[in-house]
């Protein structure tokens, strides 16, 4: 059993928008003997748009508090996130604390008011990195008992799981890891030109029509390529591509109805997990195309 400290993030809370990711990730980790210990009483990481209200020190204090709690509760264990935005803001915070002594000193003055301190030393990682680097491709592949043969998936990496830090030494313009994860389940990763295009992120809330133009292009590209589903590691991408399909159809006269799944859902099914283990009952666009694999 490999043990990690775990930061689920707001969208992975019970009954929150990425509850399907959370459930399928939990199932996946159980199958791969990964134990995720949730940090007790964690707070939001501030995401990328935290800059507007939070500036530098308040924004970075958010993740620093989680680091301090993680260290208190879990010692030096690596801190793992599943949400791209959470991972990114944690990575950014740990790099700035490590390289900017003045920032670190100020953040610690703030932490002290809450009875905490953080001296550095915790490694922040994305679950995908844990899977690739600690579990390994061979083990991940060996677990497959029900290959998803014939399923055509567009692997949508999006931005923040990819830039600016990257996963597994992949390139920013054409990362391979997600396609490899799709392929190990027995499905086919179709060539997908919009693999790393932006879905609009948090601007889906404030600039909805413009963001819908971005997501329309992404979905259209997958549909044109013959995809049965789009697969992503990111809860923001998942939400933006899935929930707004109705709106996109209404705005642009399209008739999209394509399931947007997490890599973890594919893997759980291919490992012989059930429909509910994979949280496929929690899709907004029904994942009927997956029914033949349970």
């Amino acid at each position: 059993m490999k043990e990690y400290s775990f930061f689920p993030g707001c969208s992975s809370e019970h009954n929150a928008s990425a509850a399907n990711m959370e459930t399928s990730v939990r199932s996946l980790c159980k199958m791969l003997a990964i134990q995720l210990n949730e940090i007790e009483d964690w707070n939001c990481c501030g995401a990328s748009i935290g800059y507007a209200g939070g500036g530098v020190i308040p924004r970075l204090s958010l993740s620093a508090r989680n680091f301090a709690l993680s260290k208190q509760q879990q010692g030096d264990k690596d801190l793992v996130a599943t949400c791209a935005a959470c991972w990114l803001s944690m990575r950014e915070t740990s790099e700035r604390l490590a390289h900017e002594p003045e920032v670190k000193a100020k953040v610690n003055l703030a932490l002290k008011e809450g009875g905490l301190t953080y001296d550095g030393g915790i490694k922040t990682r994305h679950l995908v990195e844990v899977l690739i680097e600690d579990v390994g491709w061979d083990t991940m592949k060996a677990k497959v008992t029900k290959p998803l043969s014939g399923l055509k998936a567009a692997g949508y990496v999006g931005c923040q799981t990819n830039r600016p830090f990257g996963v597994a030494g992949d390139s920013f313009e054409n990362p391979q890891y997600l396609d490899r994860m799709i392929a190990l389940t027995g499905a086919t990763a179709i060539p997908f030109a919009k693999k790393v295009a932006c879905c609009g992120g948090a601007l889906m809330f404030s600039e909805q029509e413009k963001s819908c133009q971005l997501t329309r292009d992404i979905i259209q590209c997958a549909v044109d390529g013959g995809a049965d589903c789009i697969v992503t590691p990111c809860p923001v991408c998942q939400l933006n591509l899935e929930v707004y399909q109705g709106k996109i159809n209404q705005l642009f006269g399209t008739s999209f109805n394509i399931p947007i799944l997490y890599y973890s859902q594919l893997m759980v099914l291919s490992y012989g997990g059930s429909w509910t283990d994979a949280a496929l009952h929690q899709q907004v666009v029904p994942a009927d195309v997956m029914k033949k694999f349970v």
């Binding site: 931005c159 600016p164 932006c198 992120g201 963001s211």
Partner: peptide, 8 residues
């Protein structure tokens, strides 16, 4: 959109 295209 915080896409980080420019940064890389």
């Amino acid at each position: 959109t915080s896409c980080y295209n420019c940064i890389v």
